[in-house]
Design a protein around this nucleic acid. Structure first.
Ligand code: ZN
Ligand code: ZN
Ligand code: ZN
Ligand code: ZN
Lengths: 148, 148
DNA sequence: ATCCGTATTGAGACATGGTATCATTTAACC
DNA sequence: GGTTAAATGATACCATGTCTCAATACGGAT
């Protein structure tokens, strides 16, 4: 079992470091990008076929509660894609036509985060910022032609 | 059929104004807040029981593509909640323990939005900003006790 | 190293959420 | 009112996630 720094955050929070949890997190860390649950299940199974389906979902839920990953709606279908939050935050642009995502880094939301903590008496551990619109490819293709 | 300004955006985009679409949007507009698909299905059915399940989902998808609503994962990863984007944006804090959401208004993201449009050649129509952490109630309750 | 108590697990039945198909209906345009 | 393609509803279907519970394994104590 590989114990990554992120995995240790589970132990710090009082959870056991199990093979199932290490494997799921390992898969997500390796992939670095959005993954559907199907992809995660598949890859986990390849690495250790003894890990059960339920544990994968339980781990995804746990990692979400610990703000290590975050489910987001990018694909047209019902399925969320899970994305790692390397430093507690993640930002992207989603094309509402083709569902492609463009990732970007800087957000400048630190100040707002602190203000919100004070204002609402919460402890914030991360954020997700998602812009949506139509990407260059799709506007050229003229999927929605509402001008002219 | 009530034709709200938002509904006209469907026609402007080349879609027909149907009873099913008007009803679904009407339900979401009336509720003003996060709704699960189950709640939407239920309420739509109350207003017009002839409207089929599939059309509700088709309309949710369409409204999402038009950036009128946005699905977000507030309660774990199972079911998204759909939320109206009154002025193209929506912002909230999600408690990762109890899944309660706290809505807030000001984001100051207009500048960043314009910069991204220029940088990536996209046309942005809205954004979702989601902070997560632990709300006051949950930290008092000490659901995760990792200090001291 | 071994033992113990409890969190966690895996299997699989189950529930829920969303989609595909297709004959029928309806909005939009004239 | 007539035409036509988009949209619909019914329903069967599939995918995704959850529940239960006996079995297992982690982590701390010895
Ligand atoms: Zn696109
Ligand atoms: Zn950020
Ligand atoms: Zn909200
Ligand atoms: Zn905003």
């Amino acid at each position: 079992m590989i114990i990554s720094p992120r995995l240790e955050r589970l132990r710090d929070a009082g959870y056991k470091l199990t093979t199932a949890r290490a494997t799921v997190l390992g898969v997500i860390e390796t992939h670095e990008g959005h993954m559907t649950s199907a992809e995660i299940l598949d890859e986990v199974s390849k690495r250790d076929s003894s890990i059960g389906r339920a544990s994968v979902f339980r781990t995804l839920d746990l990692l979400t509660r610990l703000a290590i990953i975050r489910p987001t709606y990018t694909s047209g279908s019902a399925t969320p894609t899970y994305v790692l939050m390397p430093d507690g935050h993640h930002h992207h642009i989603v094309c509402v036509q083709c569902h492609q995502t463009i990732e970007f880094e800087d957000c400048g939301l630190g100040v707002l985060s602190e203000r919100l903590e004070a204002e609402f008496g919460v402890k914030l551990t991360g954020h997700l910022l998602e812009f949506y619109g139509v990407c260059g490819d799709c506007s050229e293709a003229g999927v929605v032609d509402d001008e002219g």
